[in-house]
Amino acid sequence: MMLYSLAKGIMTLVLKVKGCKITGLENFPAEGPVIIACNHISLWDPIIVGCSMPRQVYFMAKEELFSIPLLGQILHGLGTFPVKRGKGDIGAFRKSVRLLKEGKVLGIFPEGTRSKTGNIQEAMAGIVLIVNKSHAPILPVKVYGARGLLTQKRGKIGIIIGKPFYADNLEIPEKTENSREWLANKIMDVVNEM
């Protein structure tokens, strides 16, 4: 927790200097479990999201990052945990649900990888499994201007926080072949439309 507070303090200062704009902070739940579903355009996205939220955000990150000396220890210290991409990672799933059952904030990039174009990509259905098991509200978040954060002009970086919603309130069209895929992509549609 001490590392998280220190890192957040330093990076929040960097974001202030860069003129990072935060819109919709009033939509962030003050307590209880919440799943942040965010677009993914840059390596800076988790930092921007984490620094913009008043509560600690626990992110999933690809397991390969944890094998990099020092970086893996830092990620663990920040509350980040590994996920095996492209596979059904039961350990990451259980950790996600446990964090939400404890009333914490889980950060997920449903696209699974950064978008090279900046456009929203197909979402992975894993988020729906977590949503269905935890029954936590989804908080749509959109990051913009994060590419080249340190060289980006002041005031071009920001985050939009939408209103939380429950997946149960989304009506799946009849004859939908894969309801999980449809729901995952619908979540990202909400992010994209902000």
Rank of each mutant, 00 (worst) to 15 (best):
S52W: 05
R85L: 08
L15P: 00
A61N: 10
K8G: 00
P173A: 11
P46V: 03
L149R: 00
R85E: 03
A123W: 04
E174N: 14
M11N: 09
L99I: 08
N132F: 13
R98L: 12
L6R: 03
E26C: 03
Y144C: 02
A146L: 06
L100C: 03
R154Y: 12
A123Q: 07
S5L: 03
L183P: 04
S42V: 03
L13C: 15
E193A: 15
K84G: 10
I138D: 02
P164N: 08
G32L: 06
Y166F: 15
P173R: 04
I68R: 13
E26Q: 11
L25Q: 14
N169S: 15
S67Q: 12
E102G: 09
T117E: 02
V141K: 00
S179P: 12
S96H: 08
S52I: 01
A146M: 06
L6A: 07
R147H: 10
Y166Q: 12
W182A: 11
L106S: 02
L149W: 01
F66K: 10
E64C: 09
K133E: 10
P69I: 01
V128I: 08
L150Q: 07
I74F: 05
I172L: 09
V143G: 02
F165H: 08
L25S: 15
N178Y: 00
E31L: 11
K8A: 06
S96D: 08
G162I: 07
F165W: 09
G19P: 00
D45A: 01
